[in-house]
Nucleic acid binder design. Structure first.
Length: 559
RNA sequence: ACCCCCGUAGCUCAGUGGAUAGAGCACCGGCCUCCGGAGCCGGGAGCAUGGGUUCGAGUCCCGUCGGGGGUGCCA
């Protein structure tokens, strides 16, 4: 799909050669104002010195020497300080419609990232409660990004890192136990730093109704201090902690699958710990001289590898900080051979990039492969009024609640509508509204409307001999230009690591389709023109469906 | 104290170093005997501020002001 650009670039280079510029610099750009054409080049300005000519004069000379295939590109002249402008040939644009229909779901695919192995880690919420809306944004962004990377030919794995080890298991077990005791009519105080969410009480009530509850009741009775009880051969606290975590992990998986997000791997911290991976990482760091002791604690010399300070990896009590297993975990990513490793984290982890990057450098890895994407927070609104959320009081809005209320389509689309670097205002009432101020429905409506045109025409597929050369109306050509942009937009999303541009493009395609629809009658008296326009309609549908699918949003045939 | 993100139209936001800075919402006025009016057409206003780099800066660098978030052997 890039053939027009490639062709023009080569033609400009050889024209410059002919003029006598040996080291020709050719950059193609897109004029901001469509009046200036589809492609512009500043070649005459940049190469003016090399040619020893005034920019405008050089531009004229280039145009004289330039040989371009007029079925692809048409020069429109010199403008401003020396820009040379070009337009896509109608023939080229018309061929896009045919191409899209032929390629169908493969439209937009490319091999730009072929051979690249990419890993994206996202959500990775602690298994101490249900997923909340913050995770939902990460899920939408991470999953769409991976879909885009795949369309561009990369292999991309999605991964969830499960923090199922460390003292939060204990803490969760204690909180769970307290709630369980309450169901047995025994008063209990949730410990400092414990989990107070209603969802713990919920699973405790479930447990009380479970057959394992019998065993638990017996165990509690024999000991005077219920905390010291053992059940199924281990302490009641750790048994409960693991049980609660497993429950939450499978709930996370269900929530994500329902949100159309499938993780290739759920990487458990407990596996790392069992293999002593954190201590192996420490040994490796020590071997490389990257560890020093101070006041009984062990520090990693991250400051020597680009971070602002050194960080504790083992406390003076001899316990690893969370950073050590994290290092071990990231080391596995590098050792698994990925070319690009992306972590999507919340804005509170902004120290992570230099810190983890430095640790990886200290271990001899190429830290440039690791990228940390800091996803900004979301503010939930209802008709413009903020929805109060307090994690401490356990009043979080669950991802499932939000998705149930607004639907997967609206939720995923809304989460992508802002750049990842911008905090997102999510208005629940707006997302639910089926009206023209809701962008999701605007885009989906365009797709459904096309389907209805085919129904109305009584035709399933556009005919093969579909005279696309008849697509010459300005609105038709503008629509074709939009469809051509799909590969550009995908490439942009991949480079910026942000699917947001896809939602902007989708809206533009939908807008241009509605304009075309208004100005050009599809079902008409000329069979040839009808065939050509049906082809354009199908091509638009293909493009919309691809874009929506990359966002994880459905493309309905009727609404 | 330090660190990160952000200041563009009344509101929410686009804007790969290039030409006269764009959309949506809201507001006003038009358009259905016509393929889905969940649509189309028309109408106004703006780059927080001071420097610097450049032939050229909303975009890159430094300062100031304003908003949001975070941090000091907790995860």
């Amino acid at each position: 799909m890039k053939r027009a650009h490639l062709h023009l670039e080569q033609a400009l280079t050889s024209a410059l050669h002919e003029i006598g510029v040996t080291e020709a610099k050719v950059i193609l750009e897109r004029p901001r104002d469509p009046e200036h054409g589809d492609i512009a080049t500043n070649a005459a300005m940049v190469n003016a010195k090399g040619a020893n000519m005034q920019p405008r004069k050089l531009a004229e000379t280039i145009l004289e020497k330039l040989k371009v295939d007029s079925s692809l590109i048409v020069p429109v002249g010199v403008a401003g300080p020396g820009f040379i402008n070009f337009r896509f040939a109608d023939h080229y644009l018309q061929s896009i419609a045919t191409l899209a229909v032929e390629q169908a779901s493969a439209f937009g695919q490319s091999e730009t990232l072929k051979g690249q192995r990419v890993q994206i880690e996202f959500v990775s919420a602690n298994p101490t409660g249900p997923l909340n809306v913050v995770s939902a944004r990460a899920a939408a962004v991470g999953d769409s990004l991976s879909r885009i990377f795949r369309l561009l030919g990369a292999q991309c794995d999605r991964e969830f890192y499960v923090n199922d080890a460390g003292n939060q298991v204990e803490l969760l077990g204690q909180s769970y136990f307290c709630r369980y005791l309450e169901t047995q009519g025994i008063a209990a105080e949730i410990p400092e730093g414990g989990y107070r969410g209603e969802y713990i009480a919920e699973i405790a009530r479930k447990l009380a109704a479970d057959k394992d509850s019998e065993e638990l009741r017996k165990a509690i009775k024999i000991v005077d201090k219920p905390w010291k009880a053992n059940v199924f051969g281990e302490s009641v606290i750790s048994w409960l902690g693991r049980r609660a975590m497993d429950e939450f992990i499978s709930r996370h998986e269900r929530s994500l699958e329902h949100f159309r997000v499938h993780m290739e791997r759920w990487f458990r911290e407990s596996e790392l710990r069992e293999a002593k991976a954190e201590w192996n990482a420490l040994t490796e760091l020590e071997k490389r001289g990257a560890i020093f002791q101070q006041e009984g604690a062990k520090f990693v010399r991250t400051s020597e590898y680009g971070d602002g300070q050194d960080w504790v990896v083992v406390t003076s009590q001899g316990r690893p900080t969370y950073f050590l297993p994290d290092i071990a975990y990231h080391l596995t990513k590098f050792r698994r051979g990925y070319d690009l490793i992306i972590d999507i984290l919340g804005p509170d982890h902004h120290s992570y990039l230099t810190k983890m990057g430095a640790a990886m450098s200290a271990l001899g890895e190429d830290a440039k492969k690791l990228e940390i994407l800091l996803l900004q927070h979301i503010n939930l609104l209802r008709d413009g009024e903020p929805v109060k959320m307090s994690k401490r009081a356990g009043q979080i809005i669950e991802m499932d609640e939000l998705v149930e209320e607004v639907g997967v389509d609206a939720a995923r689309y809304f989460f992508l509508m802002r750049k990842t670097t911008t905090p997102l205002d999510f208005d629940i009432e707006l997302a639910k509204r089926h009206s023209d101020d809701n962008p999701v429905f605007y885009v989906q409506y365009a797709h459904a409307r096309i389907e209805s045109i085919f129904r109305r025409a009584g035709i399933e597929e556009p005919s093969e001999s579909s005279h696309v050369e008849l697509l010459t109306h300005p609105e038709e050509l503008k629509l074709l230009r939009r469809l051509r942009e799909l590969t550009d937009v995908c490439a942009e999303c991949a480079t910026t690591r942000d699917p947001h541009a896809m939602t902007v493009w989708l809206r533009e395609v939908a807008t241009q389709f509605h304009r075309f629809y208004h100005h050009c009658r599809v079902i008409g008296d000329s069979a040839e023109l009808q065939a050509a326009r049906l082809t354009l309609c199908r091509a638009t549908q293909v493009a919309l469906r691809t874009g929506l699918d990359l966002c994880g949003v459905s493309a309905p045939k009727e609404m």
